[in-house]
């Protein structure tokens, strides 16, 4: 069966579509384990108490 990316061509406006990629989530069964903590970490980031993982090195 046709994959999503091929189907999207029919609906997505060319420029934004070509700037995007569609990828599966990486955390899989660990998603729930990270979801709650991520809420807190992002909130701490918003008030300047935590740097994003790619900002602190």
């Amino acid at each position: 069966m046709k994959p999503l990316l091929e189907r999207v061509r029919k609906y997505g406006w060319k420029q934004p579509r070509e700037a995007c990629s569609i990828v599966p989530g990486k955390l899989g069964s660990k998603l729930g384990e990270y979801a709650g903590a991520s809420v807190a970490l992002y909130a701490l980031h918003e008030i300047g108490e935590w740097d994003l993982p790619w900002q602190n090195n």
């Binding site: 990486k26 809420v39 970490l41 992002y42």
Partner: peptide, 19 residues
């Protein structure tokens, strides 16, 4: 304590630590 809906939380998790 900080709070959000599950879709936002999962999105944040994938953004911070996933894909």
């Amino acid at each position: 304590a900080f709070f959000d809906n599950d879709a936002n939380a999962s999105g944040l998790a994938e953004w911070l630590f996933g894909s």
